[in-house]
């Protein structure tokens, strides 16, 4: 069950403020990093929505993000459609694909569900990779960013775009949190907890799972629109399963089922990769060891563990007061 606790709000505010500050004062490369973090964080929120609260872990969120990015890019760069409707179309495409896969795969669970999502994600990757019209592995360029001159902003400026991307995290987090607190979100958590019971209560679990994936995929689609606008060039690598694997790592690293943890995880993962990469070409080993240590230190992810300690201590404090 999801609670937007003060600790979570505080953590989110700190992370977002830190990202904005880093983008503003950290130089040009900091902005690239902040945008990279924002895209990964939005994708992580979308995955945590279904994996952390619905218990449905997927390995196709990268493909969903890529589908939206391709949808946006084809409409804007090939057909000259206005970026705003193109973005909605891309997000809708992602949501439809996610819902369709969930509907087909909802009979399976656990590792079988993961592998089913992997299968559909890889099919999509292969199709786009082989498509000459979409540029194959050469990718597509010439993708425009939103034109925000009507509110006096210029998204071709990397600082303004970075702050826009951080704003994107906040919006996606807000939507995910609101939905999780709604009756729909409570039902999803209920299905995760005990599916037969929810069915006995008259809930159509199949429809709920499908809807949950549609929402999650739409959020992943937002990440896709940001990704396409960030590089203004897209290639099929965006859809490859390792991207989905990386997001899953980020979610677990930050704290599965905490919603804010994955945002923190994304920031830590990207920063760590770049910082370690400055000193050695062998950043994999450092990140790998960190993943292992995180689990061995408690297994709730970085934010999850911190929350556990804090609530544990406050409970102890309460108990000692009562005594």
């Amino acid at each position: 069950m999801f609670h937007q606790t003060p600790a979570r709000s505080f953590t989110l505010a700190v992370v977002l403020a830190a990202l904005v500050a880093y983008a503003t004062f950290g130089g040009f490369f900091a902005r690239e990093i902040v945008i990279e973090i924002a895209i990964l964080a939005i994708l992580a929120i979308s995955l945590d929505f279904v994996a952390g609260f619905g218990g449905m872990v997927s390995l196709f969120h990268g493909a969903v993000m890529g589908l939206s990015a391709y949808g946006y890019s084809v409409l804007t760069a090939k057909f000259g459609i206005h970026p705003i409707p193109a973005a909605f179309a891309g997000i809708f495409l992602a949501a439809s694909f996610g819902a369709a896969v969930a509907a087909i795969a909802s009979r399976t669970s656990g590792i079988f569900f993961i592998m089913a999502t992997l299968a559909f994600g890889q099919m999509l990757y292969t199709i786009i990779f082989k498509s000459r019209w979409l540029g194959g592995d050469d990718g597509m360029g010439g993708i425009p960013r939103f034109d925000a001159s009507w509110i006096g902003l210029d998204f071709n400026d990397s600082l303004q775009f970075a702050i826009f991307a951080v704003f994107g995290i906040a919006v996606c987090y807000g939507i995910a949190a609101l939905l999780l607190r709604s009756a729909f979100g409570r039902t999803m958590c209920g299905i995760h907890g005990n599916e037969p019971r929810m069915r006995a209560l008259g809930v159509s679990t199949w429809k709920h799972k499908t809807a949950a994936f549609a929402i999650s995929s739409a959020i992943a689609g937002v990440a896709g629109v940001f990704a396409a606008q960030h590089t203004q060039y897209i290639s099929p690598e965006l859809l490859f399963w390792t991207v989905s694997g990386e997001v899953l790592i980020v979610v677990i690293l930050g704290g599965l089922g905490t919603l804010v943890g994955p945002v923190l995880g994304a920031a830590i993962f990207v920063l760590l990769k770049h910082e370690v990469g400055n000193y050695t070409d062998h950043w994999h080993i450092v990140v790998g060891l960190l993943l292992i240590v995180t689990v061995m230190a408690g297994g709730r992810g970085i934010y999850g563990q911190a929350e556990h300690w804090i609530t544990g201590r406050s409970r102890k404090a309460r108990e000692s007061l009562n005594a």
């Binding site: 040009f28 490369f29 690239e32 990093i33 990279e36 990718g139 990397s158 990704a227 960030h230 590089t231 060039y233 290639s235 690598e237 965006l238």
Partner: peptide, 9 residues
């Protein structure tokens, strides 16, 4: 590709 572009920038 995205990493290469970010690094080029």
């Amino acid at each position: 590709p995205p990493v290469g572009l970010a690094k080029a920038r």
